[in-house]
Amino acid sequence: MNHTHTQEEAQRQAKPLAPKVKELIARTQSIILATVDAEGTPNSSYAPFVEIDNKFYILVSFMAKHTKNLSEGRKTSMMFIEDESATKQIYARERLTIEATTTQVDRDSETWNQVVGLLKETHGKVVDVISEMKDFILIALHPVKGAYVNGFGSAYFVDENLEIMQHRNETNHQSK
């Protein structure tokens, strides 16, 4: 039996634990965002975040295209990805991609104050300045479903609680 095939099979069957997903999120300071506008034109961007109870919060300005898309509740995807400098294989970077719904948090609500405080604690005093600017709003991203990848042939469906559900593809990559 081919040793490489045996390793690939073992990797595919070794379902990663939810903590692996949480560890990736914990190593990440910003979310890569994909949004669409009213005409369906895609826009990619990023925003620093904090996570509270499986929701991701970002403080964003209407000067950025993605803010209008997020505030109007359009389709959103977010990605957490291993740093390029830390990856062993650029084609197989560890990553978590999540489809999400969005809601805007009311300014000066209890949630606003809690999240802005945590953003300041996590990302520094700049949050004091930008949170006072009227063009900045607080958006909550609510995970719906997603995928976690941690190597070749190691892709898994993830639920709204960021729990690994099942292997994403039972078919291995095919050679020519």
Rank of each mutant, 00 (worst) to 15 (best):
D37L: 01
Y148L: 05
I139M: 13
Y156R: 11
V36D: 01
E121T: 07
G146S: 08
V21G: 00
A34N: 05
V126M: 12
G153A: 09
T35K: 04
E94N: 12
E84W: 03
N169Y: 07
H5K: 14
L96M: 10
E84I: 09
L141K: 09
E51S: 09
T101N: 14
F80C: 10
H66A: 08
S77P: 01
D128R: 00
T102E: 04
L24M: 00
K134W: 00
N172T: 06
A64Y: 02
E99H: 12
Q166M: 10
Q166C: 01
K75D: 14
G153N: 10
N54Y: 05
I137D: 01
M78I: 15
Q166L: 02
E51N: 05
E160V: 00
V126D: 06
Q114K: 13
P48L: 12
D135L: 00
K88G: 15
P48K: 03
D106M: 04
I137S: 02
D106G: 06
S30G: 02
T171D: 13
Q104K: 14
V144M: 10
N69K: 03
H123Y: 09
H123R: 05
A140M: 03
V126S: 08
T4C: 00
G153D: 12
L96E: 13
F136K: 01
A92N: 15
P19F: 05
S131M: 04
F62Q: 05
